[in-house]
Design a protein around this nucleic acid. Structure first.
Length: 425
RNA sequence: GGAGAGGUGGCAGAGUGGUCGAUUGCGAUGGUCUUGAAAACCAUUGAACCGUUAAAAGUUCCGAGGGUUCGAAUCCCUCCCUCUCCGCCA
C-alpha cells in the first residue's frame, strides 16, 4: 500500500508516478471518499467524546449516590447516533482501503519507461553463450529417458506437474544445497525453514491478497490456509507487527521452499518442459532493511544472485524491468535472465526487487532509532535462484553430443564428485 | 481426539462493570551525586489514526471478531493461539 498521507499532500506527483505504469488513479473518487471519510470521522469522534464524557459523569454521580436517571435520559439517543456514525465510518474506510489496496507501488526514478518486456533496459551481460558443434537439445529431450517425466506428473496430479528421476533429481537437490552454502557462508544470509501454508494475514502483508487471490492455491476445509507462491511470503512476514530497535537491522534471510502457483491466465504459455510449473523449488533471499539502506541493499542482492550463475559458469544478462513489466508491489526490479541453448533465448531465472515501504506499511513493520518515532522499514526479496530453471540451464548449457551432461565444477562436491551424468550405457 | 489452565505495554506481572491506556517491578533513556564508574535518588518511557510549522487537544487499541450496557481489560458468544495431562501418530 502506498502512503495515504502522500495522496493527500502530493497527489499530483503520485498520480504522475502511477501513470508511468499505465495505472490511472481515480482522483475524483479518491477525493470524494477522502472528504466523506474526514467528515464522518470527525462526527464519529465527537459522538465518542460525548459518550466517554457522559459515561464518566454517570459514574461519578452514581458514586456520590445521586439520581442518575436524568443523565441517562440525556444520552438516550446517543447510542443509536454513535452506532450509525461508526457503521458509515467503517463503510467509507472499507471503500478507501479496498481502493488503496489496489494501487501499485510508486516507481523508483531509475525505472525505464516502457510497455512490456521488450522495453526492459539491459544492465549488463556476463559470459558468452556457448556455440555447439552439434544440434543442442532442450532439457525435455535431454531428460527423455525418464529423468524428466511429465506423463507421470500428469497421472499423479495433472498438467504442469512433473516427476524427476535418478541423477537429474539428485542434480536438482544438489543445486539447492549449493545455493544455500553460497548465500549463508559467503553472503551472510541466515538460513531459515518455514511453513509452506500461510494464513490470510501473511498474504495481505506481502500483497498477494486481496488483489491476486486467483494466482494462489487455497486449501479447502474449515481452515483458510493458502499454499505459498514463494517463501518471500512467510519470511517477509517475520517483520509483521514488529518494531526493530537500532542495531537489529539489516536482517538477511535465505530460505528454500516449494512454490505453488495456479498460473491462472498463462494457459498456452511455456507448456513444454519445466519452465512454468504449478509446483517448483526456489531458494529465496529476503532482506529487512532500514529505509535509508534499501537501494544499496538491492544492488548487493542482485550481485548475490548473479554469483550463483557465475559459479556455475552460466551465461546471463541483467535487465532493469520497465514500468510496464514490473510487479505490483515493487518499486524497482532487476531480473536475471540465463541463456537457454534449447530455446536460444535468455529466460528469467531470478527477480530481485525493492518493495520499499509497500509491504512494510501493510505489515506495520517498523524500525526505531533510540527514542525516535518508529518508521517503516523497507523489504527486499530476490530469487537466488529458481531451482527448476537453474536445472534446465545446467542441463542445456552443459550437454554433450552423446546426450550426457557435464557437472559444473562448483556442483561436483554436491554430486559425490560426479563429473558427468546421463551417460549412454 | 479427550480433560484442564491461560492470552494485559520491551519483559515480568496486578487489575470488585465506572476518574483504567491501565498499579507495581525489571529493562531502557535523561538527570543529580562521582575524577570516572557502580550504587542510590529524581524524572521520562506503548502503538495506530486524526491534527499542527511544531505542539496541544481528540479517537482507537488489553489475542481476533461480534454482543450486552449510559459505560467493558473486566460479563456473554464465536474463533485463533499458548501451556499441562491423557490418547493417537511421522
Amino acid at each position: 500500500m502506498i502512503d495515504p498521507k502522500l495522496l493527500r499532500s502530493d497527489l499530483d506527483a503520485v498520480v504522475a508516478n502511477l501513470s508511468r505504469r499505465g495505472f490511472s488513479f481515480d482522483v475524483a473518487r479518491f477525493e470524494q471518499l477522502e472528504s466523506r471519510r474526514r467528515d464522518i470521522q470527525v462526527e464519529t469522534q465527537a459522538f465518542q467524546t460525548e459518550r466517554n464524557a457522559s459515561a464518566k459523569n454517570i459514574g461519578q454521580a452514581k458514586a456520590k449516590g445521586e439520581d442518575i436517571q436524568p443523565l441517562l435520559d440525556a444520552v438516550a439517543s446517543l447510542g443509536d447516533k454513535l452506532k450509525a456514525a461508526e457503521e458509515s465510518l467503517a463503510e467509507v474506510q472499507g471503500e478507501l482501503e479496498s481502493m488503496l489496496s489496489g494501487v501499485p507501488n510508486l516507481l523508483h526514478e531509475s525505472v525505464p519507461a516502457g510497455k512490456d518486456e521488450d522495453d526492459n533496459e539491459l544492465v549488463r551481460t556476463w559470459g558468452e553463450p556457448r556455440s555447439f558443434d552439434f544440434n543442442a537439445k532442450d532439457h525435455m529431450d535431454l531428460g527423455a529417458d525418464g529423468s524428466i517425466d511429465p506423463d507421470m506428473g500428469a497421472k499423479l496430479t495433472g498438467a504442469r506437474f512433473v516427476v524427476l528421476n535418478g541423477e537429474i533429481a539428485r542434480l536438482h537437490r544438489a543445486l539447492i544445497q549449493f545455493m544455500f552454502d553460497l548465500h549463508t557462508q559467503e553472503h551472510g544470509y541466515q538460513e531459515v525453514w518455514v511453513p509452506y501454508l500461510v494464513n490470510e494475514d501473511s498474504l495481505r502483508g506481502t500483497g498477494q491478497l486481496p488483489k491476486f487471490a486467483e494466482d494462489l492455491f487455497a486449501l479447502k476445509g474449515e481452515r483458510e490456509f493458502y499454499l505459498i507462491p514463494t517463501s518471500e511470503v512467510p519470511v517477509t512476514n517475520f517483520a509483521r507487527d514488529r518494531i526493530f530497535e537500532s542495531g537489529e537491522l539489516p536482517q538477511k534471510f535465505v530460505c528454500h521452499s516449494p512454490c505453488f502457483r495456479s498460473e491462472a491466465g498463462s494457459h498456452g504459455r511455456d507448456t513444454r518442459g519445466l519452465i512454468r510449473q504449478h509446483q517448483f523449488e526456489k531458494v529465496e533471499m529476503v532482506r529487512l532493511e532500514k529505509a535509508s539502506d534499501s537501494w544499496e541493499a538491492l544492488e548487493e542482492l542482485i550481485r548475490n544472485a548473479e554469483t550463483v550463475l557465475q559459479r556455475l559458469e552460466l551465461p546471463y544478462r541483467v535487465v532493469n524491468l520497465c514500468s510496464g513489466d514490473i510487479g505490483f508491489g515493487a518499486s524497482k526490479t532487476y531480473d536475471i535472465e540465463v541463456w537457454l541453448p534449447g530455446q536460444e533465448k535468455y529466460r528469467e531465472i531470478s527477480s530481485c526487487s525493492n518493495m520499499t515501504d509497500f509491504q512494510a506499511r501493510r505489515m506495520l513493520a517498523r524500525s526505531r532509532e533510540g527514542q525516535s518515532k518508529p518508521e517503516l522499514i523497507h523489504t527486499l526479496n530476490g530469487s537466488g535462484l529458481a531451482v527448476g530453471r537453474t536445472l534446465i540451464a545446467v542441463m542445456e548449457n552443459y550437454q554433450n553430443a552423446d546426450g550426457s551432461i557435464a557437472i559444473p565444477e562448483a556442483l561436483q562436491p554436491y554430486m559425490g564428485g560426479l563429473e558427468k551424468i546421463l551417460q549412454p550405457s
